[in-house]
């Protein structure tokens, strides 16, 4: 008998997040597989002064930064790929409201690996010899910023290397395609650093597009890269990454990506966005209504949807998931 860790999004945020925490999340693809549903709830619960650790920026960090919920952030990539600059994040950085510490897409992953391994540092052959090493938004008066990526000597050859600091976030909200109620999870598409992150964070909440029967995990144990023993809670949220994509499940919502980024470019637009697509979308039904029934149907007709086929048999219906959730509510949670 496996443990049922399913809880509501609201309970997950209220139980596992605090003001000022180091919060790790963000996209596996810079414009996909992002647990942004968790970020929307963070805003609804008015968390603030977050220290965001995002392998890559995503619409979630863009939104949290625009909403003023983040004071400090560390990132590899900080744009929105083909959708351009992340206007909310950009505005917060340019105004000096948010200190953004730059790394690269490999060094962020290596820092999560370092945290997972409990290493004091990770030797780096990247980021050295660049302003990523020499400039620090967290220590702006230090030039070169010797404490960000200090130069160390290889003990075997004496050659110079950079030392990357490890990351152990207080909380990681990780998007997965499928999870069983215990938190055994399958990610369709590339992992980026979700494997390392799930081992580096002090608490792990999964945000899953689909809940599957535990038999699914036992059928594909090689593909369960985040086992339930690492997971504190599981949140079910269809279209959890919207307007970003989830390989196998749904495509990117191009129109909403643009609308969202346009709104986040100004204070007024951000307030409007939050009112319309955050405050008023707390319930499942309101959230799906905000996406729109036609859009939901269209986005699910993805060229990648065949990737979900092997698992469809085990996907739980809404009624089944709600029954599991209700059991936890009556027991007082996972």
């Amino acid at each position: 008998m496996s443990t049922n860790k399913l809880i509501s999004l609201r309970d997950a945020v209220s139980r596992f997040s605090t003001d000022g925490m180091q919060y790790a999340s963000g996209a596996a693809l810079p414009v996909g597989s992002d647990a942004i549903a968790f970020g929307r709830e963070i805003i609804r619960q008015k968390r603030e002064k977050l220290h965001a650790l995002f392998h890559c920026n995503s619409q979630q960090l863009n939104l949290l930064a625009a909403a003023g919920a983040v004071d400090r952030a560390e990132c590899g990539f900080s744009g929105l790929e083909v959708f351009g600059f992340a206007n909310g994040l950009r505005r917060a950085v340019e105004s000096g409201r948010l200190a953004l510490e730059d790394y690269s897409n490999l060094s962020m992953a290596l820092r999560f690996l370092g945290g997972a391994m409990n290493w004091p540092f990770v030797p780096a052959t990247v980021n050295i010899g660049s302003d990523i090493a020499w400039r620090s938004a967290f220590a702006p008066n230090a030039h070169p910023a010797e404490e960000k990526i200090p130069v160390i000597a290889d003990p075997f050859t004496g050659k110079s290397l950079g030392a990357l600091s490890p990351l152990k976030p207080d909380l990681a909200a990780i998007h997965v395609t499928l999870s069983d109620p215990e938190g055994n999870a399958i990610m369709i598409g590339t992992e980026w650093s979700r494997f390392e992150l799930s081992r580096a964070a002090k608490k792990v909440v999964l945000v899953a597009d689909y809940i599957v029967d535990p038999a699914c995990s036992r059928q594909f144990p090689n593909l369960v890269r985040i086992p339930g023993v690492l997971v504190d809670a599981v949140v079910w949220q269809p279209f959890a990454a919207w307007p970003q994509s989830s390989p196998g499940a749904y495509d990117i919502d191009e129109a909403h990506m643009r609308l969202m980024n346009e709104r986040l470019a100004t204070e007024e637009g951000t307030a409007r966005y939050i009112d319309e697509f955050v405050t008023k979308t707390a319930s499942f039904d309101d959230y799906l209504a905000a996406i729109g029934a036609d859009t939901v149907e269209r986005l699910q007709k993805s060229s990648s949807s065949f990737l979900l086929d092997p698992y469809r048999h085990w996907i739980k219906t809404r009624e089944e998931v709600e029954t599991l959730l209700a059991r936890n509510v009556s027991k007082g949670g996972a």
């Binding site: 600059f85 950085v93 340019e94 000096g96 953004l100 690269s104 052959t125 990247v126 008066n141 910023a145």
Partner: peptide, 25 residues
Amino acid sequence: EIGNTYTPPVTRLTGAGGANDIASG
């Protein structure tokens, strides 16, 4: 030129992403 104190840029761009890793390795 940025000078000795690292101030926020007038225009923030997308960051290094994986390009720094490619340029290094």
